[in-house]
Design a protein around this nucleic acid. Structure first.
Lengths: 193, 193
DNA sequence: GGCATGAAATAACAAAAGATAATTAATGGT
DNA sequence: ACCATTAATTATCTTTTGTTATTTCATGCC
């Protein structure tokens, strides 16, 4: 925990050492390998997964049996099943590590208890909901008003590191295109602009 | 207000008459015509628009100058600019009535004040955030894992009334296709299944 | 280091969606 | 009720995207 504490403090400066200790006491710190699954579709798991290091992808399987990546979570980002988190229903998504990662798995029941008596954790929750809302809206915006090529450029500009780190097949499905299409987009951009 | 009170009570049963009266006192009840604009892109307007009757559409304009409908709000649904609501920044969307409508325009500043002392309105806000989150996630899901035809069928099954009420051009852009494509989808479905 | 495995790029073809235009249907205003 | 305007459908053509297969490239493993 001593390595991760400064990082958490950087990102959530209002959290004091005692808050973070409380957070860790109701959470599990898990180190996972690339390919390990943290949450499986169909399971009821209302945990929130906070990425301390590494990379997660969340995906669903569509009616043709293809995996669709719906979220890519890097350091300080979260991953969770909204279905499970809000309704205790089977998860619609699978969460899988695509890098060796260190994940803080926050038990939502214990967390809900904790925020009753801890204002800073309550603030963390409020911020979390808010940022989830903003992310979802932003992503909706990208998917509805931008073309695949515009989406790729936007993603590249916002997350230059991820272009290298995320395997193309996952990025393609995240951007809503096939791997072949993404290849074409990249070569088009490389040629001109 | 006396006609609208029962409807609000139906949808938010935890609200008492006094809560609803407080809500109305910090809101404006506006009757609008089809085509009237409630919020214009670029304006800072953090109000939440609750549809008491009628139909609103929220749209953005993409880089080709085309209007993209991002939300269709019928009775008891809301419309707001997240940008303005959360950050007091210029709105990214325009909200327009597409039926003669009665809209409760809730002033978010006054509302934030009110929830400090009124638990039921606080619950209303929490529910509102929650349902916004669910809606956004659901819509993301639809747009990423379903084909246009599957999206149309889903929309039709969930909102059979809206198929009649929403002009096709708005529905098409909401589903992420052109009007011509939507026509084709409809005729395909009409022929077989 | 070479070999096996899987991912990415490329090519050729098929299918789907977009663009445009013409026709039909619906709507609103006088 | 009629006309003007706009929306929806249909047809044709073009462009884009997906599909499949092949080649090139990268990675991990022995």
């Amino acid at each position: 925990m001593d390595q991760t504490l400064p990082r958490i403090h950087d990102n959530f400066p209002f959290l004091q050492r005692k808050d973070i200790e409380l957070l860790f006491s109701i959470s599990e710190l898990r180190k996972v390998q690339s390919g390990d699954v943290l949450l499986k579709e169909g399971d009821v798991n209302s945990n929130v997964h906070l990425v301390l290091s590494g990379l997660l992808r969340s995906y669903v399987i569509n009616s043709s049996g293809d995996e669709k990546t719906v979220l890519i979570s890097k350091e300080n980002m979260r991953a969770a099943s909204l279905n499970s988190f809000l309704h205790k229903r089977p998860s619609e998504i699978t969460i899988e590590a695509i890098e060796p990662s260190t994940i803080l798995i926050i038990n939502s029941n214990l967390f809900q208890q904790a925020i009753i008596s801890n204002e800073n954790l309550a603030l963390l929750e409020k911020q979390g909901m808010r940022s989830y809302l903003i992310d979802a809206t932003e992503r909706l915006h990208l998917l509805t008003v931008l073309s695949p090529e515009e989406r790729f450029i936007r993603f590249r500009d916002e997350h230059p590191d991820l272009i290298q780190r995320v395997p193309q097949m996952y990025l393609a499905s995240y951007l809503g295109v096939t791997t072949v299409s993404l290849s074409r987009i990249k070569s088009r951009i490389a040629k001109q602009g």
